[in-house]
């Protein structure tokens, strides 16, 4: 460590590190220390054993929640892709003014707290909300239950996370050299074939980036599924919350959090090996 600092000073490269120091200290105090605390609790609460992990990894309730979390995350990711890809395409291929307008609309939801957006969905999808009213007006006798279902939580999560997908894909689309498209056309490609053989593969890095980002955020999503989702189809974060504020089972909650963390890190590691994590952040 001392050696390292000496070498850094020698190269006069110390400044950037000094500038990073406040952030590093902040992260250490408010993120790393609590995280270590959680890790310790997972093997000491209520007694120092690995029993918590054994229960988390074998109990059918917990496995079902984990499975449900993965399915939801995959569904949300896929839906974000379906919505985000055409939007990104539109943005990357329209006139500057139109592109700016779409960009504004997409990023606008970034500016609104996702808590606010979650409540907005509660109002929209509620039993007295405009959508149910519309269905009734259109003559649907018994409008389906929209709120507190897998549908409502998925819909809201897609709404909240789609901008991440759009921005990732958009940034890759923007960088595509137009000469590649012209080449493809001059070589006889058009329409769907051009899309399938040239455009889609060229945008694949954006799809991968966006998908991993959305998927990983989704795995740990708490507020939206808890407020909008079906209580019978919980996600891991919600379950952890339950353990802690309903059952005061700090050990179990911590063990689940650790499993979630390991799974997330595993996904990121595999992704990094394959594509390079740096690309995820643009």
């Amino acid at each position: 460590m001392g050696n390292c600092i000496a070498r850094l000073t020698e190269r006069k490269n110390l400044w950037p590190w000094l500038l990073l120091a406040p952030l590093a200290i902040y992260m250490a105090v408010f993120f790393l220390v609590p995280l270590i605390d959680v890790a310790i609790m997972s093997v000491t609460e209520p007694r120092p054993t690995l029993a918590n992990y054994q229960r988390v990894l074998t109990g059918s309730l917990y496995l079902r929640v984990f499975l449900n979390t993965f399915i939801t995350a995959a569904t949300v990711t896929f839906a974000c892709l379906l919505v985000g890809y055409p939007l990104a395409y539109l943005m990357a291929n329209s006139k500057p003014r139109t592109a700016t307008l779409i960009l504004l609309l997409v990023t606008m939801s970034f500016w609104t707290s996702f808590l606010v957006r979650t409540y907005a969905w509660m109002v929209l999808l509620g039993n007295n909300g405009p959508i149910v009213w519309l269905l009734q007006t259109l003559g649907v006798q018994q409008p389906p239950q929209l709120l507190f279902t897998r549908f409502s939580s998925t819909l809201a999560m897609v709404h909240i996370l789609a901008p991440y997908m759009v921005m990732n894909i958009y940034s890759v689309m923007r960088k595509i050299d137009p000469v590649l498209i012209r080449s493809a056309e001059s070589l006889g490609a058009k329409g769907l074939a051009l899309f399938r053989h040239v455009y889609l593969p060229l945008t694949a890095p954006g799809i991968a980036n966006g998908s991993v980002l959305v998927f990983v955020i989704c795995l740990g999503f708490y507020v939206t599924p808890v407020l909008l989702g079906s209580p019978r189809e919980q996600m891991v974060a919600g379950l952890i919350g339950n353990q802690i504020d309903e059952f005061l089972a700090f050990g179990m909650g911590s063990a689940m959090a650790m499993v979630l963390l390991v799974v997330t890190l595993a996904i990121l590691t595999i992704y990094h090996r394959r594509f390079g994590l740096d690309k995820l952040w643009g």
Binding site: R182, S183, K190
Partner: peptide
């Protein structure tokens, strides 16, 4: 006739090879 119908080969300055 659209470019893909013209049967004309083009080499651009920066080649335009498909990287994938």
């Amino acid at each position: 006739l659209a470019p893909y119908q013209r049967n004309i080969g083009i080499v651009f300055q920066n080649y335009g090879l498909f990287p994938h």
